[in-house]
Design a protein around this nucleic acid. Structure first.
Length: 557
RNA sequence: GCGCUUGUAGCUCAGUGGAUAGAGCGCAUCCCUGCGGAGGAUGAGGCCGUGGGUUCGAGUCCCGCCAAGCGCGCCA
């Protein structure tokens, strides 16, 4: 059990005891039982329950705090419980319990930080899902980092996680892409009069695709039936684009369990079934020659077209079929969609969609990730697929590195707009927060290497010898990781991970500064071994934290 | 015009309704007879956009206003 939960149980128990003894009137507790105080002098945990109970109890909060503190049941992990003004009950963990955590962490190894709160619930995280009609840009990078980290944390918290990329390979945009690619293919073969259609894809990458396909297929599709040729060449281009996207994502350590094809919804009949279901349930209406989803009846501020007058389904129609597939066909307990801010207007209709499908809207969480503004030396550069001025994910990673890229994107809340100055990122690269954390890990690796060279084994180190303030502070920080994993799994806000990583590194550096680990003095051998165990545990905690973030934990730098 | 998000130190950003608002970078001043100085210590720097409200208590919740970003299509 987490120390936090243990303390929460104790404060709840004390309240109950006080009520039974008539010291406190029966009143329901609201809000969290314990919190992490900001100041170390306030202990490891604090409860503001007395402050919140004061009114109902018609007693001064400090008096309640004193009564509760006296009633808290003892536990070996808790060394001290005390009331503090204006009405807190503070808890300090015992040194013995802290020291035991070192051995516990080493025993858990790479599993340290894991939790079972997820209870094996099946969660799907769908993220990136950028159209395969062009290379990934920086906005997609942010979503990729957020989604993959979330997936890592949810898995660590005991969920069965599936990472998914939805491929928009049906519809008008794909058609335009086919034609654009075919035009470039034909141009590469020297054919006159082949132009990218109006509104088509103009980027240099399409020209490049055309050249590649020309050298691969030669004249094979240059003659013959135009429709057929466009589809064949376009599809080959799409597959190449997807392969590029996959490769780009690998650059920042992102991999998917499933690549889901929109086209498959039509081919597999899910689209038809979904539409039939919506019709039967009376959620559709015909108007102006089109089929509409009656979403305004379900809380949206307007209705949405499902099938255009032309008979072409909208993106939204397949999106409903897609989510029906997720929940009804595949049975995910929870689905998290990571979207860019440019899709935020679609959130209400997704809620309406869940209602229409007879599903609990709470099972679908849509995380909106605000846009990334790129700056280059003070000049704002907007990443856009249409202007041709692309700052791609690949360019970004090649300039600042995958680790720094992930760390920077992660360190901010999803809902805050992110200003990323490429020049600044590069200039600060030697003094980057990510290197600070990685350096701590590498430093420990160095110490452990030296210990091995000197033939100092630390398996039998006695952690009870760890008494220095810096040693205990380091353990305290390490022991917070499982709690953090649970919190992030609940809040879906992993930006606290880089902050924690920094604090953990600081705690280690402070320990390193005050506590000599290796020593040539034989009298210090026992302490040395104990500290080696602590250092190894700190390395485990750092590696796990970095691992959850998808940032590398180097042995040397 | 309407909706969503944001406004906290010079810059980039943290801050589960609770105790004296924090970090990194930048700036200033210190610390190496020793395990990696990509380190450590100290300091300066804040009407938390603004005006009301709720509360024992508001950076945090509610309302108005100001400012920024993004949406508001039979585009995706």
């Amino acid at each position: 059990m987490l120390a936090r939960d243990l303390v929460a149980e104790r404060i709840a128990g004390a309240v109950e005891a006080a009520q039974q003894q008539g010291l406190l009137p029966a009143a329901a507790l609201t809000g969290p039982a314990v919190e992490r105080p900001q100041k170390a002098e306030h202990g490891d945990f604090a409860s503001s329950v007395p402050l919140r109970l004061a009114r109902a109890a018609r007693m001064p909060p400090m008096e309640i705090a004193e009564r509760l503190a006296a009633l808290v049941a003892p536990h070996e992990a808790v060394a001290r419980v005390w009331a503090a003004p204006p009405g807190f009950v503070n808890f300090a963990l015992s040194d013995d319990w802290l020291r035991e955590q070192v051995d516990a962490i080493l025993a858990q190894g790479t599993a340290f930080g894991n939790s079972a709160v997820g209870g094996g619930r099946r969660v799907q995280v769908e993220f990136v899902s950028a159209n395969p009609t062009g290379p990934l840009h920086v906005g997609a990078a942010r979503g990729a980092v957020l989604g993959s980290t979330l997936a890592n944390v949810l898995a660590a918290a005991g969920h069965e996680v599936s990472r998914e990329y939805y491929i928009n390979d049906a519809g008008q945009q794909v058609r335009l892409f086919y034609e654009s690619v075919f035009a470039q293919y034909a141009q590469a073969l020297g054919r006159e009069g082949e132009e990218v259609p109006p509104g088509g894809y103009q980027g240099e990458y399409v020209v490049e695709l055309g050249r590649e396909l020309a050298s691969e297929f030669g004249e094979r599709f240059a003659q013959g039936e135009r429709e057929e040729a466009t589809r064949e060449v376009g599809e080959a281009g799409l597959q190449r684009m997807l392969a590029n996207i996959k490769a780009d994502l690998e650059l920042i350590g992102v991999a998917f369990d499933n690549w889901f094809s929109e086209r498959g919804l039509f081919e597999g009949g899910e689209y038809e079934r979904t539409l039939a279901y919506l019709r039967e349930q009376g959620h559709t209406l015909e108007r102006e020659g089109a089929l509409w989803f009656n979403s305004s009846a379900l809380g949206d501020d307007k209705d949405n077209v499902l099938v255009r007058g032309t008979g072409q389904p909208t993106y939204f129609a397949s999106d409903i079929a897609y989510h029906r597939d997720k929940f009804v066909k595949r049975g995910f307990d929870q689905v998290i969609d990571v979207w860019g801010a440019d899709h935020q207007g679609h959130v209400p209709r997704m809620r309406a969609m869940m209602e229409a499908l007879g599903l609990d809207p709470a099972r679908l969480t849509i995380l909106i990730c605000q846009l990334v503004t790129l700056k280059r030396g003070g000049e704002t550069v907007r990443a856009s697929k249409r202007t041709g001025e692309l700052i791609t994910l690949r360019e970004l990673v090649e300039e600042v590195g995958a680790d720094a890229c992930r760390y920077f994107f992660l360190a901010r809340t999803a809902e805050s707009q992110l200003e990323f100055d490429l020049e600044l990122a590069k200039r600060q690269s030697a003094d980057n927060p990510v290197y600070y954390v990685q350096y701590a890990h590498a430093r420990i690796a160095g110490i452990l290497r030296q210990a091995a060279e000197r033939g100092v084994g630390w398996e039998d180190g006695d952690t009870q010898l760890l008494t220095h303030e810096a040693e205990l502070a380091l353990i305290r920080k390490m022991a917070q990781l499982p709690e953090l994993v649970e919190t992030i799994a609940r809040t879906l806000a992993p930006h606290t991970l880089p902050h924690y990583a920094g604090e953990l590194a600081t705690a280690f550096h402070w320990f390193y500064d005050h506590c000599r680990v290796l020593s040539s003095d034989p009298e210090h051998l026992a302490l040395s071994k104990a500290r080696l165990r602590l250092a190894a545990a700190a390395q485990t905690a750092l590696a796990r934290t970095l691992g959850l973030m998808g940032v590398s934990a180097p042995e040397r730098m």
